[in-house]
Write a protein that binds this DNA or RNA. Structure first.
Lengths: 284, 284
DNA sequence: CGATTCCTTGATACGGCTCAAGGAAGGTGG
DNA sequence: CCACCTTCCTTGAGCCGTATCAAGGAATCG
């Protein structure tokens, strides 16, 4: 049995403030923490270094315990959230009570964006573990965007990244087999863990088979069976929530199904008789 | 056989400028057109009235002919696009040549957003008919956002709307049957046509069965069969690209498949013992 | 009018869902 | 600490929905 999962609560903040109690008995440092712009930029992995020495601008942290909802569907929107530590899920409840998992936000991820348009949240965010989130009041953000050009760009960039992510999900759900979906899921988790400084080879799932299935458009049984199959082939080791990655390359290249339209598409691509690529230089 | 499809090229611009040649032989008024902020806001259906009398700010139009590519994957990004007239598709090409349709932009839709993050387009946009697009140079947009608060908000709003749309696609692909997907597709098309001032009851598809299938995560045969089935039941009439909507209500309520996880979810929802809804007032 | 693309329809196979049952883990109260 | 309960996970058997393969007809275009 695999044990020793990575602790999900880490205290590596460059935050100069507080950080008082050295021994952390679970989740006791609930005193307000604040992050400045630089920390925020680092967390969001924003390329353009937001080198604002503006230490006046601080963003408040908030804590949520496992199972708590950060926001619910229909709730008035006024803030975005960035995960500082912990794991969550965002879900959509379809017309008749069925839950659809949309994402599993973790350290460095932004969520809550869906509320901007209608001023009400379109989805629900639930903490899968104790979480420390940074609150980004939307009013504050837009004001900030108007004064700091790089910041405005950063906001667009992060939202664009989210959109690309959703698109790749659509693509995956539309085209890949169950095995390929689960394989991709594991690879992306492994990558994210590596980003966060954890082991990419051995980690604990923070979500149930049911939630994974919902996220991937599969049933929990299929997820379970697929993990078992990967285990038997030697690609991974599985023991309940504990996953050991054995053969990341095979997981990355695992495919299935494409034979369907591949030929038609390749033909179409090879032809491309008319329709040249057009490029435009914008001027004004 | 159904005929008399709505002409896809209409000349109802409140644009005071040009609009010279009265008889439109296909697509001959290719002289540069310009739109101001107000027109842009109307087109994008932005709630907050962008009442900028700033007629100095004009956005250039560009024309594309059927089959042309507006942008390709990997191409440097520097502009967003808003559809003024015509129909397009955006596609992702997966690791081995397979084409995945992501959206069918039409009048009032924004696309190109996926390029912001990496500065290169992640998808390809192809004209399905002759198109008239408004070019939104990204530099110009960000500059504008800094000076006009409502405009900045509008940009976020439109991007948020796109994200919500993608999320609902994910939800659909993950949970609905083939019949339900096709039904929803028809309903949303009907709605869009109504928005644009066309008939919501009788219209022409601008895309092939193959493209619809790719968009919905189905094969072209399944799309064809499903349309035929709807035809037999009397929900619609089909003749090649021509679609007549007969029973929109049935199309809207058509479902299938959910029995799977519905019970489990409803139970979970009914319980909700711990985890109270949390609401936060942002202050600063 | 031939070539190509697109659409329809049929026969068949199979991947993943459904239904079902039992076991493991974790939490709770005695 | 143990008994109980609930949630979560695994595995099996069978079926159904959709993909696959195939062939012919319709529309479009040069």
């Amino acid at each position: 049995m695999l044990s020793s999962p990575p602790s999900e609560i880490r205290t590596e903040f460059s935050n100069p403030a507080s950080h008082s109690s050295p021994h952390e008995t679970g989740w006791q440092r609930q005193g307000k923490l604040w992050s400045n712009l630089k920390e925020l930029g680092d967390l969001l992995r924003i390329p353009s270094a937001v080198s604002l020495a503006d230490d006046e601008l601080l963003f408040q942290h908030v804590q949520f315990k496992t199972g708590q909802r950060v926001h619910t569907i229909g709730q008035p929107f006024d803030s975005l959230y960035v995960v500082h530590s912990g794991f969550l899920k965002t879900v959509l409840i379809d017309e008749f009570g069925n839950e659809q998992v949309l994402s599993f936000p973790m350290k460095g991820d932004l969520f809550g964006v869906d509320g901007i348009h209608t001023r009400h949240h379109a989805s629900e965010a639930v903490a899968l573990s104790n979480c420390d989130l940074i609150l980004l009041p939307f009013k504050k953000l837009t004001a900030l965007g108007r004064t700091h050009a790089e910041f405005e760009h950063a906001m667009y960039s992060v939202m664009s990244r989210e959109l690309v992510r959703e698109q790749s999900m659509v693509s995956m759900l539309g085209a890949l087999s169950a095995e390929a979906r689960v394989a991709r899921f594991l690879v992306s988790l492994s990558d994210r863990y590596a980003d966060m400084g954890y082991s990419s080879k051995l980690f604990n799932l923070r979500m149930t088979r049911h939630e994974i299935g919902s996220y991937l458009g599969l049933t929990l049984e299929t997820v379970s069976r697929t993990l078992s199959a990967f285990n038997e082939i030697g690609l991974i080791s599985v023991d309940q929530r504990s996953i050991g990655i054995k053969d990341i390359d095979s997981l990355k290249t695992l495919r299935r199904l494409p034979p369907s339209s591949s030929r038609a598409k390749q033909l179409a691509a090879r032809k491309q008789k008319a329709a040249g690529v057009t490029q435009l230089a914008a001027s004004a």
